[in-house]
Amino acid sequence: MRSGWARFWFIAEPVWPIWFYRAGLCAWTAAFFLPRVPYLDELYGAWPVHQPAQPFAWLGLPVLPLVVVQLMVGALLVLLGLFAVGGGRHPRVVHAIILVLLGYLFGYDMGPLRGYGKLAAVQWGLLFFAPYDRRPDERAPRWGKRLLMLQFTSVYVFTVFAKTIQGQGWTDGKTLYYSMLSPQYGQHLLSRWVTFDLTMVKVMAWLVLAGELFVGFGLWVGRTRKLAMLACVGLHLGMALTLRVSLLFHALMLLHLVLFVSWPEPDRRA
């Protein structure tokens, strides 16, 4: 049991996937904030539609002047660029400052923030435990990377339970059917040109549930990993072709697949 635990968390693995992931997360975060730049006054100003995240509401944190928010976003974009290429001499300090900035920018915008924004916030926190300050050709204990991987796959497992046990309309396909029919959430690319009948959508809904479970568990097993990666790509491609879900969501999820590439093999003697 103890050796299994140690093997799972502490075997030394190549650091390069974490480097790719860090650069990807920086690029993703910049892509998240850049389209928001023209609307900073609307998104972070004292407008009567603000719903700050719960901790912000409890703390009664004031709305900052627009110029301060602009400076924060500017600083964030610069630091993301620096962190993407290694973080300079003190990558942990740069990371900590990024976390503080994101704390405000994600937190204050948390009301309308979607699931993928929340996942990105969690992963930025967990990335702190990954050995990104080592050289990419070095090996390091993988526990930080494991946390990122577990968080990622848990999203797929949780979402299946949320849909089937607490949600509704998935076993009969109606949620997906209405989503694809809806001009607000569907009627997008493929679903705009092809009308799927309810029976067809019911099969698709079950395939989605099975696919999400398979991704959630299959990525952890060597024999099914490649197939689970393909399933993950297929799931997100299907969603991108039929539903009005931001491309940022798909990009963030697919970025995580780099964490599951193990080459060369982990050093089991470590």
Binding site: G115, F158, T159, A162, Q166, G167, Q168, S182, P183, L243
Partner: peptide, 25 residues
């Protein structure tokens, strides 16, 4: 804790994207 909260204390599971929808926009 998230699982226990959902199973025994009526909490909502996280990552509920598209977990239910009506026919209304």
């Amino acid at each position: 804790g998230l699982v226990v909260r959902a199973a025994f204390f009526g909490g909502k599971l996280p990552w509920r994207m598209f977990s239910g929808r009506t026919n209304a926009d």
